[in-house]
Design a protein around this nucleic acid. Sequence first.
DNA 1: GCCTGTGAAGCTATTCACAGCT
DNA 2: AGCTGTGAATAGCTTCACAGGC
Lengths: 204, 204
Amino acid sequence: MVAVKTVGRLSIYRRILNRLLSEGAKNVFSHQLAVMAGVTPAQVRRDIMSIGYSGNPNRGYGVADLIESIGSSLDDPEGQKAALVGVGNLGRAILTYFSGRRPKLAIVAAFDNDHKKFDRVIQGCRCYALDRLEEIVQELGIDIGIITVPSGEAQKVSNALVRAGIKGILNYAPVRIQVPRNIYIEDIDMTMTLEKVAYFARKK
Amino acid sequence: MVAVKTVGRLSIYRRILNRLLSEGAKNVFSHQLAVMAGVTPAQVRRDIMSIGYSGNPNRGYGVADLIESIGSSLDDPEGQKAALVGVGNLGRAILTYFSGRRPKLAIVAAFDNDHKKFDRVIQGCRCYALDRLEEIVQELGIDIGIITVPSGEAQKVSNALVRAGIKGILNYAPVRIQVPRNIYIEDIDMTMTLEKVAYFARKK
DNA sequence: GCCTGTGAAGCTATTCACAGCT
DNA sequence: AGCTGTGAATAGCTTCACAGGC
């Protein structure tokens, strides 16, 4: 199993590589990827090593092959499905950002408790009533939940997701959610991050 | 100067403490804060130590005092101002999330190049034409920029922010931006994070 | 000559574990 | 008895530096 931080960087490399591919690049050196990803060349080589891919000392890494190789490490060959809970501005932003971006990973259902949103299709993703969450998550075989509801509802939504059998949660609500240890959870705390930037903008 | 990760956690502790304060709590132990923040008690104590605050072995930490102490480490006494560039769904979500949350840190201007948005006030924040960015950032004394424009425009926007004298950038566009070394930059890469969750949802 | 792959070194961050206090 | 504060130990992550290959 690849380390958490390495997975993050591999995802970034892949995005860069896809752009390079579309620009017609055949090969790339670790120092070039490093600049584009904002890391050191040694870091790039280590990360690529960790998925067992090998470059060529003369030509660097094959762009297409490396994309392929990252895919076979990161992606589920069957594809994975995510559900988004909370169709506010942030939820819609995520649906827009993400729609059709990655073939092996799609947000296939959205949930909200505002009945004006029910059955509407936003960015190719249908919106359901929140109380149908467990039913639909199981029916569609979804295993990732994205929480974009207000803080006060986050734990309740998380519990429902876990009951429905989800395995990973991406939480945008600014509270720590308690989940069983076998669930992977990642928090994106936008307020905290802005405060961090403010602090270092001052101190640097 | 406090370490990057510590600043992040202090911001989280503060949010928890504010909630505790509003619930009438007077004191709190490191192990209680630890559970609520999702870290270890030793971590909490180290972080608090790093800002020079001291608790009491009998009563733990004073809630109000600790909030005060975190504030005097993290906040600029004069207050700091931020500008948001790109008033799409994500931009609006951030304005909503953040409006009036922290007295010492406010988003005071938004920029977009859609003229239908000019002069509209969104969550108490006025929207200006993108080409007035440098002028207004300087006029208002803004020193933090939040980038929520599409990838293709992010570097250009970042350059304008830097020219205008900004000191820190929070970047939501999924590209690494090149900035001078004296600018602090933090990236929030939502696609990358979702891919991380997807990976560990599978592997755990 | 300039690259990759990688053992070893170096750093940073976290946790242990316990003295000291109340 | 149960907490905080903290030196020391540990774990995790990144970079160095160089052998080996083209």
